[in-house]
């Protein structure tokens, strides 16, 4: 086994364990921390795939900002006492898990088979991918793509963020008026 394979199994294993922990812990704080572990090992996987910039942004955005917000809300609402009956029980839980396993089987089937006749296996793609080993995708390349070829989607994203910003302000302001 090469170093890359060993690292893949370490990061992949940790992210799977973390993901299972997210849905099994009773307390939201522990779930949130497990999710951070998953995100972090996913950043490791991104580095293995040669996407250093995405890995850094993954940690900054998910681990550094989004999960802190989650923790902030969990602490603010002091949710610990409510979590006792937070899980489905009995028959419903069984059905959910059976459906989940079916879903996973489908996903794996698609992952293994669906890409056979696509561009992924084509000679040009293999050549380009081999070229990446000596000439990796850098921040510069992503910047060029983002601000030239995909400028319109980028601007639309900023509109989405603006809409979210206004939405949050509206939600919070209404709360204040009710209090008064």
């Amino acid at each position: 086994m090469t170093a890359d394979q060993i690292l893949f199994f370490i990061f992949g294993g940790v992210s799977l364990i973390g993901a299972i922990a997210v849905i099994s812990f009773r307390h939201p704080i522990y779930s949130a921390l497990s999710l951070i572990v998953t995100f972090f090992s996913q950043a490791g996987l991104f580095v293995l795939l040669g996407a250093h910039f995405v890995a850094a942004v993954q940690v900054i955005v998910y681990a550094g900002a989004i999960m802190v917000l989650f923790l902030f809300v969990i602490m603010l609402l002091n949710l610990g006492t409510l979590s006792a009956k937070g899980v489905l029980t009995g028959k419903l839980k069984g059905i959910a898990i059976v459906l989940g396993i079916l879903f996973a089987a489908q996903g794996i089937y698609i992952a293994v088979n669906a890409l056979t006749d696509t561009e992924v296996g084509s000679p040009e793609a293999i050549e380009r991918a081999a070229d990446l080993a000596t000439n990796p995708i850098e921040t510069y390349d992503i910047g060029i793509l983002l601000f030239r070829d995909y400028l319109l989607p980028f601007e639309v994203t900023s509109l989405i963020l603006l809409a979210a910003l206004i939405g949050v302000i509206v939600l919070v302001k209404r709360e204040n008026r009710v209090e008064n």
Partner: peptide, 8 residues
Amino acid sequence: AITSLGVY
């Protein structure tokens, strides 16, 4: 990225 983890 790493300093943003310090808050935890």
